[in-house]
Amino acid sequence: MVGRFFINYYYSPINANDCHYNFGNFILLFAFITVLFRPYSMILTVCEKFNLPDIQSVKPLVSGLINSSYKISLNNGNSYFLQRINTGIFKNPAALQKNYQLIQQHLTFNGAMKLPELVKTATGNLLYDNHGEVWRCFEFVKNTYSPTAVHTPEKAYEVAHCFGSFTAVLQSFDSTKLEVIIPHFHDLDFRYQQFKTALQNAPTERIVQAKDLIQRIEDYASLVKKFMIINGDKKAFPLHIMHHDCKISNILFDVDTNAIRCPIDLDTTQAGFFFSDMGDMVRTIVSSLDENDTRFSELAIRTDFLKAVTEGYMDAMAPFLTAEERSNIPYAGSIMTYMQAMRFLTDHLNGNIYYKTTYPEQNKDRTINQLRLLDLLQEHITGKKYTVA
């Protein structure tokens, strides 16, 4: 049994619907390297703790940038999602599970989306701590898939409506019951202060090389002032329970009908401002190029996708937004794109210690990409070529 498991673990082909990202040979190589550093005996031990017997195969799911995830397939046809939580980022794994249960219960009570079920250990716990490595397990929902990109305005509308509906259903839930998973997650002033600290501590050579980008970030500081206005008026800009990681790969679709089943990956779901989810979708869906693309001059905003995202989100959330929030929706994409540009540049100045990179200047290039997108979004809002102050 162990010999067959070893073969399946190291050589089972990775299906695109399983790993959610299909980057061809690079992904296969990355997955192979990943499993080399995860002894199969460890996986067997963890599976045993979650009462998962008679394992047919284990497939690394290489889409995540934070946690390490695996699809566990049993000989009885059932599959499970096993995940080692990165406790360097998520310092309170129990809070993740508590929040998930509370949200799941609320959605079920209101007859809304059905989330994947949590799987308990043989002793009835939601987590297994193996000498400091914390693991959890979910059902792997049958006949579902998660695409990696939005290819049509119609799909963009569906994605935005899904995440908007998620927050809309949670309007009746007491957000104070949720644990704060990552403090200051989409706090633009906090990110700006991190940027300033990086400037103070970065090597002179890095600062000189990035001086033009540093100036661009400073030129857009009016967006920090806009955030401060938002943050200072809780009546006009109340907190909502936001998903905070709105990308199409965090939605399960039905294999047969292509209909949306539910959002997934609720780790960063917590109270936040109106611009977070809408802005993140504008940033990731509306841009014609991925944030890692270096063809900066070719980057454009797809206005039909922008219209679809806005309509999809507002069709779900408009009744729950204040007049001030609705009037500022056009700036959601700009705020989140500026924040991400700033975070990329901050990480570059800090020596690439947060985001995974494949070459030394990647965070710098990501900053250029996001600032180009920000320019285009501002031009779209004003109707004229945008020049930062």
Score class of each variant (00 low, 15 high):
His380Ile: 01
Thr108Ile: 11
Cys137Lys: 06
Glu139Val: 11
Ile329His: 00
Asn78Arg: 15
Asp365Trp: 05
Leu126Ala: 03
Ala122Phe: 03
Gly312Cys: 06
Thr357Leu: 01
Thr144Val: 06
Ser69Cys: 14
Asp245Pro: 09
Arg191Val: 07
Met278Thr: 05
Val388Lys: 06
Leu213Ile: 05
Ile103Gly: 03
Ala221Gly: 01
Asp277Ala: 04
Asp189Tyr: 13
Ala112Asp: 12
Gln209Lys: 14
Thr148Leu: 08
Val169Phe: 13
Gln104Met: 02
Tyr313Leu: 03
Phe32Met: 06
Glu117Ser: 15
Ala323Ile: 14
Thr45Lys: 15
Val388Ser: 11
Gln105Ile: 03
Arg261Asp: 03
Arg343Ala: 01
His243Thr: 12
Gln193Glu: 14
Lys356Asp: 11
Lys385Gly: 00
Cys137Met: 11
Met242His: 04
Lys226Cys: 01
Tyr10Ala: 06
Pro319Ala: 07
Ala95Gly: 10
Ile229Ser: 00
Leu188Lys: 07
Ala316Leu: 06
Thr322Ser: 14
Gln340Gly: 00
Phe320Gln: 12
Lys142Phe: 04
Leu213Ser: 10
Tyr21Val: 14
Ile229Asp: 08
Ala95Arg: 07
Ile285Thr: 15
Val282Pro: 00
Leu374Asn: 02
Gly383Tyr: 12
Arg261Ile: 15
His151Gln: 06
Leu199Arg: 02
Thr45Ala: 05
Pro330Gln: 02
His20Leu: 07
Phe50Cys: 08
Asp187Gln: 13
Tyr70Ser: 01
Phe166Asp: 03
Leu321Cys: 15
Leu371Gly: 09
Ser334Pro: 01
Ala156Gln: 03
Ile43Val: 14
Ile214Cys: 04
Asn99Leu: 09
Pro360Asn: 10
Leu36Gln: 08
Ile214Thr: 10
Thr358Phe: 04
Thr382His: 07
Ile251Trp: 04
Pro93Tyr: 06
Leu74His: 06
Thr269Arg: 01
Ala271Gly: 15
Val159Asn: 01
Ala316Pro: 08
Val141His: 02
Pro360His: 06
Asn8Leu: 05
Arg343His: 04
Asn125Tyr: 11
Phe273Met: 05
Asn201Lys: 12
Arg366Cys: 10
Ala149Asn: 07
Ala308Asp: 10
Phe26Thr: 08
Asn51Arg: 07
Asn350Val: 03
Thr87Gln: 00
Tyr9Gly: 03
Glu325Ala: 08
Ala156Ser: 11
Ala168Ser: 14
Leu61Ser: 02
Ser57Lys: 13
Leu371Asp: 04
Pro153Cys: 12
Pro39Met: 09
Ser41Phe: 10
Thr382Asp: 03
Asp280Leu: 12
Lys226Trp: 07
Ser175Ala: 14
Cys246Met: 11
Ala318Thr: 03
Phe81Pro: 10
Asn369Leu: 02
Ser68Tyr: 13
His184Gln: 15
Asn51Thr: 05
Arg366Leu: 08
Met42Cys: 09
Asp212Gln: 02
Tyr145Ala: 03
Thr322Lys: 09
Asp18Ala: 08
Arg216Ile: 05
Tyr70Lys: 02
Asn201Trp: 01
Val208Asp: 04
Thr294Leu: 05
Tyr145Glu: 04
Gln378Arg: 13
Gly77Glu: 04
Ser172Arg: 13
Tyr80Asn: 01
Gly132Pro: 12
Gly132Cys: 08
Gly232Arg: 12
Met336Leu: 14
Ser327Gly: 00
Ile103Pro: 07
Arg302Ala: 02
Gly383Ala: 11
Ile181Thr: 14
Asp219Trp: 02
Phe173Trp: 08
Thr284Tyr: 13
Thr387Trp: 01
Leu266Ala: 10
Thr34Gly: 00
